[in-house]
Design a protein around this nucleic acid. Structure first.
Length: 612
RNA sequence: GCCACCUUAGCUCAGCUGGUUAGAGCAUCAGUUUUGUAAACUGAGGGUCGUCGGUUCGAAUCCGACAGGUGGCUCCA
C-alpha cells in the first residue's frame, strides 16, 4: 500500500472503529454505510428514539480510543450471500440487509437511485454476487470490501466533528439516519494543521465579515435569502461587475436588458418550467388573469432578442451580456449567507454563433476569465463537466458528442490544468467549469462556459447561411463570477476582507491629531483633491487618541491610513501607513499630491499589491 | 423541504435546578482631555429576554406552534 492507500484504509478503519464504539455504547444501533470522505470518514447510524448530539462525542471518542488501545486485528472473512442476509436479519440490521439484497440482485450497492424493480431488471446474471466479504474487529462485524489496517492500534490522529441528519441512501423519502463525521490524518500534526485551517476559515466566514465590515445585511421583514447591500458592499459589487463587463467588452459583448417578470410560457418553451417549475416565484396580475413568474435566469430572454430580427451568417457571432438579478425559490434549508440566496445577480452572457466560430469564442472567453481571476489573485483549474447515462439531459446525441469532444479539445490546449467529471453537465449541454483556489487552499466553482443544445431548437433560432438556407446557431452561455452573491462570499473569504485598493470601499482614511480648525481644513483639502481623482476617502476627526483611531482603521482594513497634524500641514508631506498584507512599506515622507496620484494609478491598473 | 441544535442591548456573551427593579465588555451619545501610528478618563442612554399561545401563585428559564439562524441531508438552470 502506498501512502495514499494507507491513509484511505486508516480512515475507513476509523469508520469501523466509530461504529464499534457506537455499538458498544448503544447495542441496538442499526448501521447504514460508513465511507471515507475528504479529510476523514463518517458513519450513518440509526439508534431509534435517542439522538446522538455533540455532547456524546467525548464518550464515543473515549470508547474509540479504548478500541484503538486494544489493538484488535481487522479480520477478513467471506460469507455466502444468503448466509450474509441471514446474519443481517438475526443481527437486526435492516439497512445492511437491504444492501445485501441489492448485492444479491444486482451485484452492486451503488445503484442507489434505482428502485428495487429497476435494480432487478438491470441485473444480468454475471453481476449477481454470490459471496461477500466481511471485516471483524473485536465483537463488531461489518459488511465491507476493505481494505483495512492490520489492526485498530495502527490508526493515526482523529477527531469527531459533527453529527447531522442524512437520508438513508440519499433519498428524501427514506428514513433519516444520523451521520457522525470525523476527521482523520496520519499524524497529530496534520490533524492540527487541518483544524487550524478550519479555525482560519471560521475567522474569514463571509457572514461574520459581512456584518463586521458593513458589507451586506439581511432583514426579517425583507425575508430570508434576500441580501441587502450597504454602501460599502455596493462599492465592491459595482467594482467587480464593472470589471466583469469590461473584460467581455474587449471581445465584443454588448449589454442588453430584460425585465424581471415574464409569462411562464417562456419557460414552458425553454424547458425550464418542467425541470425547475417548483422553484419559480409566481406573480399574478390583479387586473387580468396573467400568470407571471420572476425570472430565474436570462437565457430565454436573450434568445428572444436574438430572434427579434432575421440574422445572417455575417451577423454572427452575436454576443449579449446582462448583469441582472434572478429569483429562485430555494428551499429554506438550502439558504446560506450569500452563497445560496433567493435573489441572485448573475453576470450572464450568451453568444450565438456558427459551428466554425466555436473555437475562437471559447478561447477568448477562457482568456478573459483568466484575466479576471489573475487580477484577484486566484488560480484556476478547469473542470470538464460531462453528461452521464441518465435521462436528465435534453438535446440530440450528435450535438452532445460534438460538444463534449470539442470541450475536451479546448481544455487540452488552454494551458490550464483540467480534469473531467461526468454527471456535472447542465441539462441542456456540457460545460467548462472554472475551479478557483482561495488563499487558504479551498476550491470553489466560479466561472462557467456552457454549450446549449436545447434552447436554439426550442425557440426556433435561425440564421441564413451563405447559400440562403436556414441554419441553427450554436448557443454558448458564459458567466465570469456566476452568481455575484456567491462569488462575493468566496471573494470575502479569499481576501479575509482585506480588499485590493481598487475595490476597497474606503481607500484612504485621514486621522486628525487634534480638532483644531487648521487641521480640519487641511484634511478637507486632501479629501477634495482625492475625490477629484475618484478616490474614496474618509476623515476620522473623532476626539480620540491617535492610537485608538489607528486601531480603528486597522479593524476596518483600510488600505491607506494617513495621520494629519502640524508636521503635515507645515511640510505638505505625509507618511502613509500601508495595510500589512500589501507588503510594500512606505519609504518615507511623500508629497500629498504624489501620494494621491500614485493611489489613483494603482486603482486604474487594478494592481493587488501596493506600488508605493 | 427533512434531521439536530440555536435565538438575552447594535455586536460578543453572563444570567445556578422557574422566585422582586436582567448584567458585563465593545459600540453609541455627552462631558473632561487636544492627543503622533493597534484601545485616554468620567458619565449617560439602550433589552415587553425572537414572536404568539400554554403550564404555574410566579416564566428569560418548562411545553407547543411559528419566524429567523447554524451544521448536515437533498437540490443547484
Amino acid at each position: 500500500m502506498d501512502e495514499k492507500e494507507q491513509l484511505h484504509a486508516m480512515r475507513h478503519s476509523l469508520a469501523h472503529i466509530l461504529a464499534s464504539a457506537v455499538q458498544n455504547l448503544w447495542p441496538d444501533a442499526k448501521f447504514g454505510v460508513g465511507p471515507v470522505v475528504e479529510n476523514g470518514f463518517y458513519y450513518d447510524i440509526d439508534i431509534g428514539e435517542y439522538k446522538i448530539s455533540e455532547d456524546d462525542f467525548e464518550k464515543i471518542e473515549t470508547e474509540m480510543r479504548s478500541i484503538v488501545s486494544k489493538d484488535q486485528p481487522f479480520v477478513r472473512s467471506i460469507k455466502q450471500i444468503d448466509e450474509a442476509i441471514n446474519w443481517a436479519q438475526e443481527g437486526k440490521q435492516p439497512y445492511k440487509e437491504e444492501l445485501l439484497n441489492d448485492l444479491k440482485r444486482a451485484g452492486t450497492t451503488v445503484a442507489k437511485d434505482l428502485n428495487p424493480e429497476e435494480l432487478g431488471t438491470i441485473a444480468g446474471d454475471d453481476s449477481v454476487t454470490s459471496e461477500v466479504s466481511f471485516y471483524t474487529n473485536g465483537n463488531f462485524v461489518d459488511l465491507c470490501r476493505g481494505p483495512h489496517l492490520e489492526s485498530t492500534g495502527k490508526t493515526g490522529a482523529f477527531k469527531l466533528m459533527r453529527v447531522a441528519g442524512a437520508y438513508w441512501r440519499g433519498k428524501d423519502t427514506n428514513p433519516q439516519m444520523q451521520r457522525i463525521y470525523g476527521l482523520a490524518f496520519a499524524s497529530e500534526k496534520e490533524l492540527r494543521t487541518h483544524l487550524n485551517m478550519l479555525e482560519e476559515a471560521k475567522k474569514r466566514d463571509h457572514r461574520k465579515l459581512g456584518a463586521e465590515l458593513d458589507l451586506f445585511t439581511f432583514s426579517d421583514l425583507v425575508g430570508s435569502g434576500l441580501p441587502l447591500y450597504t454602501p460599502r458592499g455596493t462599492y465592491i459589487r459595482d467594482g467587480l461587475i464593472k470589471f466583469s463587463e469590461a473584460v467581455r467588452e474587449q471581445i465584443g459583448f454588448e449589454r442588453v436588458w430584460s425585465p424581471h417578470i415574464t409569462k411562464k410560457d417562456l419557460y414552458e418553451v425553454s424547458g425550464h418550467w418542467e425541470k425547475f417549475g417548483s422553484e419559480l416565484f409566481l406573480v399574478t396580475s390583479q387586473e387580468t388573469d396573467d400568470k407571471l413568474v420572476m425570472k430565474p435566469m436570462n437565457c430565454p430572454h436573450h434568445s428572444q432578442i436574438y430572434s427579434s430580427r432575421p440574422r445572417s451568417y455575417r451577423d454572427l457571432p452575436i454576443k449579449y451580456m446582462e448583469t441582472t438579478t434572478n429569483y429562485r425559490d430555494e428551499k429554506s434549508g438550502e439558504l446560506h449567507g450569500l452563497s445560496r440566496v433567493r435573489s441572485l445577480s448573475q453576470d450572464d452572457s450568451h453568444t450565438y454563433c456558427r459551428e466554425d466560430q466555436v473555437d475562437e469564442i471559447f478561447d477568448q472567453l477562457i482568456e478573459r476569465i483568466r484575466e479576471f481571476y489573475s487580477a484577484i489573485n486566484m488560480s484556476l483549474r478547469l473542470r470538464l463537466s460531462l453528461r452521464d447515462e441518465s435521462d436528465a439531459y435534453l438535446g440530440p446525441q450528435e450535438l452532445w458528442d460534438f460538444g463534449q469532444n470539442k470541450l475536451a479539445e479546448i481544455a487540452g490546449r488552454n494551458n490550464l490544468e483540467y480534469y473531467q467529471e461526468t454527471g456535472e453537465a447542465a441539462f441542456y449541454g456540457p460545460k467548462l467549469d472554472f475551479m478557483a483556489t482561495d488563499a487558504i487552499g479551498r476550491v470553489w466553482q466560479v466561472a462557467t462556459v456552457q454549450f446549449d443544445f436545447v434552447q436554439p431548437e426550442r425557440f426556433g433560432l435561425e440564421y441564413t447561411d451563405e447559400k440562403g438556407e436556414k441554419k441553427r446557431p450554436i448557443m454558448i452561455h458564459c458567466a465570469i463570477m456566476g452568481s455575484f452573491d456567491r462569488f462575493f462570499s468566496v471573494f470575502i473569504e479569499h481576501t479575509a476582507g482585506r480588499f485590493p485598493v481598487w475595490l476597497a470601499p474606503e481607500q484612504i482614511r485621514l486621522i486628525t491629531v487634534n480638532q483644531e480648525s487648521a487641521t480640519i481644513e487641511f484634511a478637507d483639502k486632501i479629501v477634495d483633491e482625492a475625490r477629484k481623482l475618484g478616490l474614496r476617502v474618509k476623515v476620522d476627526n473623532d476626539n480620540e487618541s491617535v492610537g485608538k483611531k489607528i486601531r480603528d482603521a486597522e479593524v476596518w482594513k483600510v488600505p491607506y491610513t494617513v495621520v494629519i497634524g502640524e508636521k503635515e500641514i507645515e511640510s505638505s508631506e505625509v507618511i502613509p501607513r500601508i495595510r500589512k498584507d500589501m507588503e510594500v512599506q512606505p519609504s518615507g515622507p511623500i508629497a500629498i499630491s504624489n501620494f494621491l496620484q500614485s493611489i489613483a494609478n494603482e486603482v486604474g491598473s487594478r494592481v493587488t499589491k501596493s506600488s508605493l
